[in-house]
Design a protein around this nucleic acid. Sequence first.
RNA 1: CGGGGUGUAGCGCAGCCAGGUAGCGCACCUGAAUGGGGUUCAGGGGGUCGCCGGUUCGAAUCCGGCCACCCCGACCA
Length: 574
Amino acid sequence: MTPTAGLRFSHLISKTLRQAPADAETISHQLLLRAGMIFPGAAGVYTYLPLGWRAFKKVENIIREEMDRAGGQEALFPGLQPLELWQETGRDTAFGPTMFSIEDRRERRLVLGPTHEEVVAQLARSFVRSYRDLPVLVYQIQNKFRDELRPRGGLLRGREFSMKDLYSLDADEAGLDHSYQLMIDAYRRIYERCHLPVVLVEADSGAIGGKESHEFTSLTPTGEDEIIHCPSCGYAANLEKAQARKGEPPAETTLPLEEIATPGIKTIDALARFAGVPTSRTLKAVFYSADGRMVFAVIRGDLEINEVKLKNLLKCNELRLATEEEVAGAGLVAGSASPLGLKGIPTVGDESIALGANLVAGANRDGYHVNNVNYPRDFQVDTVADIASAAAGQGCPRCSSPLQAGRGIEVGHVFKLGTVISQSIGAAFLDHEGVSQPVTMGSYGIGVGRLLAAIVELHHDDKGITWPLSIAPHQVYLCPLYGDCSQVGEVAEGLYQEMLEAGIEVLFDDREDSPGVKFNDADLLGIPLRLVISQRSLGKGNAEVKWRTEKQPQFLPIEGLASQVKALLDQGNS
RNA sequence: CGGGGUGUAGCGCAGCCAGGUAGCGCACCUGAAUGGGGUUCAGGGGGUCGCCGGUUCGAAUCCGGCCACCCCGACCA
């Protein structure tokens, strides 16, 4: 839908703010508040004011166009969903308290949809009978509700937020791969049209579940996500998922165990210093409580445990460090904990435990450690897996070059769900042979407001927002400097009408304010093209035309200005 | 939920320690001047000092409890 093209500044409900509210720290949050584009309602809940809503709709329409172009069908799923639907897939516990849940007058429990895989699987159950009905791409753009642990950064992370979520239904893995690639390509076009550079990174699937997933991340220091990437080969992954090389198996001969007294030594760093070895010659032990039961994790001392990886491995909903009481209750000694002689507690070892010889480990006895510990000679674990956090400087898993770390905003996420959800919902179809098969699903999300905020994070200067032309609430800022020259007003009114007729989206600053006020607001709002009408240039029959991101204006004749401006905008759009 | 912080006019803040008629800047209203980067002067309106309770002759100020919001962490578009 095309928004009304014009708007008089004096009619706007919002006001610009000279100073940002003190509690806004993120740039996009500050600028969107100052520009009067959003207004806070509650933590993580915002009104989109008219100018912000126009920008929002620009982003939304770009997304919609690209989804349609990729073959997506737009629908609207219910925001209110029966809790039973979530119990069918068991994801009610996976989401846990993040789901807003309410009770109706019959004391029936409903949830405010945090996402819609279940609903779509239900649709598939009803409508998909044959392989001939596949593939399907169906999507919606709708508000999601998530009771986030901590909303933050204005639009960056809200509790009510608009999301475009598309779901692919395919007959098999190959079909899913195809849909997945289709979406990745469509997403790339979306970010391109929003003038937002992104990197595609491997990601953890989190509560959504599924096997493979990627995130589109806008690299910026204000981002919430840590990204590990390789400048040499292009490998990139969210820290939650990132891998790194941990070295080669040791060549040295193993030595006999030897207990050493280590009075007061509680940390790996202290231990390494005390023993005169690098931290990579030590063994670190960490206790976790996984859904209430104790788990013991062992890793080489120079590495950190990645709790997301561990959590996925254990398939648990809640993973946290064990308390001191829990550790002591299990008969272990914090600071000198060790997998040696451990019994009765599930143990997970990182791959790195085999990539080191003659390590220093705890003795499970206060004040003592054991030297020359070797796996698997001296201890066993129940599972060996990659549970280590990658870090900058470590070797790229693909090409061994040193990895780098950076922060970013997750502006899109694609998941290969597979058949997990369709199986529990019972969404199946008959294949060529007449055999019933579960529908293979994928899901693809973009947070519209977050994308908008990410654009501001990238497109701003010390004066305010510098919207890309494709996103700006209006393309043109018509700025008459009235003074006491009545002609300025007449010309400006005439131009306003002309531009409206030419289909130009124009914000008409019809306020009787001083030039400084108007210029500063124009800059703050970030409207790409500014037209100044004043007595000064009017004498030569000209108007001053200036791009937001350029210093110098150009002067164009008032005569036929609308079509000239139109041409400039078309140029800028290409 | 753990850690840190803030609540006084639409926004930014002072006042609180040493209890005694609630202030400043911006914004807003009226009038005048000004007219190319938040211009100037004069006059004016607006506040349950987050909420509840306590101490006191008297509480924005002291004490107790609660709530909200923001920042860091665990969670996610």
